[in-house]
């Protein structure tokens, strides 16, 4: 019974997302961004020769140079940009979608009709999460087809899909929780834009890790920051301890909190106000 209800809701949400061109725009953007990375970002290592010269000069002066994670050098700019392309869409922009779907249904008064059906807040929220999850996974698969990660195993690709799923679910639920008190998209847009800008503070920290120090270390607690480095770990050379557990810990806690908030606000506020 509940599975049938979830399936009906899911089908409705998929059709709405399709009609609103969310799938088309998301996949087109994925193709454009991944294509740009494939064409413009160098797939060869830069600076290796310069490092060799520096090491030789250091040794000539009696110094010793030890590289603790030599495989870390093997990540090209192209490979480093793939986690950024995935994270920006799935997490930073994806944050909006759950909220927008809810607000669209408020505007169309679909929610008023749903209120008198046997479905509850849990099914309603789950359906939104699954639609966004599908979109996130399709987007990620498209990016990985256009810029195939060199040497990544099937297990690593599965791990990427796992990171994307966890991140997408957390951000969709966060978006729903944030959107619940608002009347429409125009009033929701600014708070969501501010939240997205905070989430995107992980971008400069990914490009230059020293950015997340000196009073900016709060960036390390963002799920986007953890996701950037978790994807880098899975698609890159690997070997950096604590990255994946760090992502699982922060995103796991984030998922539980956002799920509880999204369900509670949908059940206690959204469903009540349209009754």
């Amino acid at each position: 019974m509940r599975a049938a209800a979830l399936w009906s809701l899911l089908w409705l949400d998929l059709r709405l997302a399709w009609r609103g061109r969310l799938f088309a725009v998301t996949l087109a953007l994925g193709a454009v961004m991944a294509g740009a990375v494939r064409i413009f970002a160098p797939a060869e290592l830069g600076g290796a020769h310069e490092l060799e010269e520096l090491a030789a000069a250091w040794a000539a002066e009696g110094g010793r140079l030890t590289t603790l994670r030599p495989q870390a050098q093997a990540m090209t700019l192209q490979a480093r940009l793939v986690p950024a392309v995935i994270c920006l869409d799935v997490l930073v922009v994806g944050f909006f979608f759950g909220g927008v779907m809810l607000l669209q249904e408020k505007a169309l008064r679909t929610l008023a009709a749903y209120r008198v059906s046997p479905g509850g807040a849990g099914l309603y929220v789950t359906s939104k999460v699954l639609v966004n999850l599908l979109m996130a996974l399709l987007y990620t698969a498209l990016v990985l087809v256009i810029v195939p990660p060199a040497g990544a195993s099937i297990g690593a690709i599965a791990g990427v899909m796992g990171v994307v799923s966890l991140g997408s679910a957390t951000c969709t639920l966060g978006g729903i929780a944030l959107a619940a008190p608002f009347r429409g998209l125009s009033s929701f847009f600014y708070p969501a834009a501010v939240a997205s800008m905070v989430l995107s503070a992980a971008v400069p920290a990914y490009v230059a890790p020293a950015f997340a120090t000196e009073g900016m270390s709060w960036i390390r607690a963002l799920p986007t920051y953890q996701a950037f480095f978790a994807l880098c770990e899975l698609l890159g050379p690997g070997g950096r301890a604590g990255v994946l557990p760090g992502f699982l810990w922060i995103s796991g806690v984030g998922l539980v909190i956002t799920a509880a908030l999204a369900w509670w606000l949908t059940a206690r506020r959204v469903m009540q106000e349209v009754a």
Binding site: L65, L68, Q71, A210
Partner: peptide, 26 residues
């Protein structure tokens, strides 16, 4: 500390008295 994500190189004087530079690699 060197293996943390913020590109802080490590320096120490090893047992032979040589100045050792520790890098993560990236």
């Amino acid at each position: 500390r060197v293996l943390e994500q913020d590109d802080a190189p490590g320096l120490m004087v090893d047992e032979h008295g040589a100045l050792a530079l520790l890098l993560e690699g990236d």
